[in-house]
Design a protein around this nucleic acid. Structure first.
Lengths: 335, 335
DNA sequence: GTTAGCAATCAAGTTGGAAGAGTGCTAAAA
DNA sequence: TTTTAGCACTCTTCCAACTTGATTGCTAAC
């Protein structure tokens, strides 16, 4: 589709623009990109790349900037997905070796690492519990009218919640509840919790609806609720030249403040891939001036969490994708 | 110190400036503030207020803006701390009636409510566990090498943490650990956990250091760590005219991104009061262009959480303080 | 003590070049 | 046929001069 030199020119323009955030002139490319021709020739190539829609101009006599189509071609065909230095590899490895007790902390550490290495803002979210199996469910009495339920899923996710009662509960009851719920739910998919209330009561008439009902309701609530979203390096974005525009800065803060938007953004990608959404490719209008790169990381074949970068369309896709690939590999390797 | 008319003029200037964010001219005050005199007289008063340090000018022929001293006088002497409408009272009451299972959720809801009513950004943090008594401590086995510890404090705070072991643990051991730790720590202040390792082992030699040590370490860690900080309405600040300055916006994002700074800010206030820090009154340099208002809310005489507003020095102190007082009262009442 | 009137001050917006960066086109060279 | 040099043209950016309008401070009269 594009001949070799056009590819080279396009790649050079995109990389120069990523570095400088300024429209790229034909002259700028003759200096450092090893294109064996004059600026006039490059101008001709640029003109044709513009006609084919890979480049845009801000005004008649300006240099070129990549179009959405240009970025897309770059991401699909031209980028180097191993753009990661030895120092970065070392830094990432040491960060990921941090001992964690909860699997969600791993996601947070990975998101923080990505933000540190790429200098972009990252967002992350834990896994939806609903995709998993209940491995174990435990109840602990706290005081006399309060109980904690701890649910362990097959991929090591731990969810806990407090349940309050209108009547006193004793240790004996808790023991039976423990037995009963594990009996019904152990190694079952999460939605098993939705069985009719009567089924819980059928075997164990000893316990009143007043006890069973709040337990089920609260467990359902905590398993179905969206996970918390963690932001890392919000301020890093504010060092980018794009953020000299107040409108851009404000949109960005609005996006990060809208948790549902961020959650949708993170949940929409395909599980197997690194997902790249460039500008208008984002489903959400609000994101049209930004690029988003996300990936879900897995342990034992189960989704553990999703991490995303929100940055300018002029994002360093090579670096971002390289780092994400490396981290993804490391996380899977580290089981 | 200030005669009645000067007070009136100062109050009028501050309130006008809070509303408009523009330097206030002598003319502007003759319109709406019921000062029975001409602009020339007001100019004379303004001139004297400036000499005493209550007002500043941005340049020789500009209107006046309040100085830090002016704001301080306003907060201490002039403001109306019952500046709250019936709608707001209703809204707040309904929000605070939300049923919560964890006491920290109450802090979050209150912070969110304050942000909604005042249109400023709020930050909130849970109580430091270290100020409380351990009411109960429970251990639950998860799998074979993982345990969850749940600690309940006397003010109803629940902390939980996961502990991993290098050797298998059985239910019998968990039972004894439960007994042993409750025996040593129940109704004790949190720092009791710091007793020498040998003391734990003295009575119960059955358990190896390999089991006891990670438990103690992890519990200490989780009790001592700073609570999560929650932000509400970050984007609300970006609608303020002050945030048309990129520098201000950037500083603001940097502040919110620095969790330690926000935590210090929230933890520094006095427990009994609503604390107001105007501009340079803030301990932290970074906050010198902002005002911070914080309060700790209590239940049963124990600190439950701290909520703060970060906004421009031109903050609507009347509204903010009125709302905080009302919420504080409500939270204590609702126990 | 208060006020009207007016000169002085200063920010902010407007205008009009001048400078500079970059393109597009043409015609010559390879 | 492809590449290149040269040059006119376009458009942004910067800056200085000027205009406008808001507001004060002062003075003299009320």
């Amino acid at each position: 589709m594009l001949d070799e030199r056009k590819k080279k020119v396009l790649q050079a323009i995109i990389e120069e623009y990523i570095n400088t955030a300024e429209p790229v002139s034909s002259n700028a490319l003759t200096q450092n990109y090893g294109l064996e021709c004059s600026s006039a020739t490059i101008r001709n190539e640029m003109s044709e790349l513009e006609k084919s829609g890979f480049l845009d101009k801000t005004h008649t006599s300006s240099g070129r900037i990549p179009s959405a189509k240009g970025y897309r071609y770059y991401v699909d065909e031209l980028l180097n997905d191993n753009d990661i230095s030895l120092e970065e590899v070392k830094y990432i490895s040491s960060k990921l070796e941090t001992k964690v007790n909860e699997i969600e902390d791993l996601t947070k550490i990975a998101a923080n690492t990505i933000s540190e290495v790429t200098h972009y803002t990252t967002v992350s979210i834990g896994p939806k519990a609903t995709t998993q199996l209940i491995e174990e469910i435990k109840f602990v009495l706290l005081g006399t009218r309060m109980m904690m339920a701890v649910i362990l899923t097959d991929s090591g996710l731990v969810k806990e919640t407090i349940i309050k009662f209108d009547e006193d509960i004793n240790e004996k009851q808790v023991e039976t509840i423990n037995y009963m719920f594990n009996n019904k739910l152990k190694n079952q998919p999460i939605e098993t919790i939705n069985r009719p209330l009567e089924e819980y009561l059928y075997d164990e008439m000893t316990y009143s609806v007043n006890v069973i009902k709040p337990i089920i309701e609260q467990i359902k609530k905590v398993l179905e609720e969206d996970n918390k979203i963690y932001l890392e390096g919000t301020n890093k974005s504010f060092d980018l030249p794009e953020f000299n525009s107040l409108e851009v800065a404000k949109n960005f803060v609005n996006i990060l403040d809208t948790k549902e938007l961020v959650a949708d953004m993170l949940n929409s990608g395909f599980a197997e891939d690194i997902n790249v959404y460039i500008g208008e490719e984002n489903e959400k209008q609000e994101l049209k001036d930004f690029s988003v790169v996300t990936f879900k990381h897995k342990v034992n074949g189960k989704d553990i969490g999703t991490i995303g970068i929100i940055g300018p369309k002029r994002m360093d896709y090579s670096k971002v994708i390289s780092v994400m690939k490396y981290i993804n590999k490391k996380l899977n390797g580290n089981n």
